[in-house]
Amino acid sequence: MIINGVSIDKTFAEAFPMKGTRIIITAQNLEWAMHSATAFTGFATSVIACGCEASIERTLEPSETPDGRPGVACLIFAMGGKGLAKQVETRAGQCVLTSPTSALFSGIEGEDGKEIALGKNLRFFGDGYQISKMIDGKRYWRIPVMDGEFLTQENTGVVSSVGGGNFLILAESQPQALAACEAAVKAMKQLPNIIMPFPGGVVRSGSKVGSKYKALNASTNDAFCPTLKGQTKSECSPEVESVMEIVIDGLSKEDIDKAMRVGIQAACDLGAENGIRRISAGNYGGKLGPFHFHLQEIMA
């Protein structure tokens, strides 16, 4: 399959099941909501070492938030509900509770009503002065803090999600690969229910499963490292000088399907004339996860 001169590999991206939730951070203005959201989703590129994968999904108009203030929706994913709960709690405690004028809400209903704590345990920061309020069947906590009151919903819903959807962009130069990634990420950011957790949505250090070192369970994806063309069983043809990956986590397989289609199309729109040669994917021979995203089927 060739789109605008860009070859689409007959391969599939592998992804794995995760547990996810959406939280909404509001503040006096969008700038402060964004400060809090940026901190909340910081150091959350990969579960390999961060414990979770998180990013800002989108900004919210005052009419879209529970308290009628500007807000930011964040998605956060972990390998299990327990790990997710720990990450949400510690991040909310250190990055939202602490952020001036912020309030914290759940942005999703749990699968079969399953929930994890959002502000449930943060309330103890109130040292007995915290106040509970049941509004519309949901419990909120009012925690006195130095700038007034921190309002947080008690729980947030948990849903089964998919992590690690991805595609690779192979280009003739590093600037061209990055330009294609930027175009893809920009297009994908318009879609709901997904995040690209790496810096700017792009990964330059894609990994393979396993390593020659026993202590590591992932290592550099040498087949796609252009500088190793002559040393390894390379996937890079002579004209390919740079490969970058976009990793996508989503609330469902369908959401990732859609995001990959939009992202690959945006990269292909730049076409061969801008140095974009191939689109491939992180295929680990079925070792990584049960969700398979076949590139040619997605782009058909």
């Binding site: 308290d67 309020k133 009012r142 007034g148 009151e149």
Partner: peptide
Amino acid sequence: HTLAFLPLMFA
């Protein structure tokens, strides 16, 4: 004070 829970309650 400005209390954030009040708009939720009124809503």
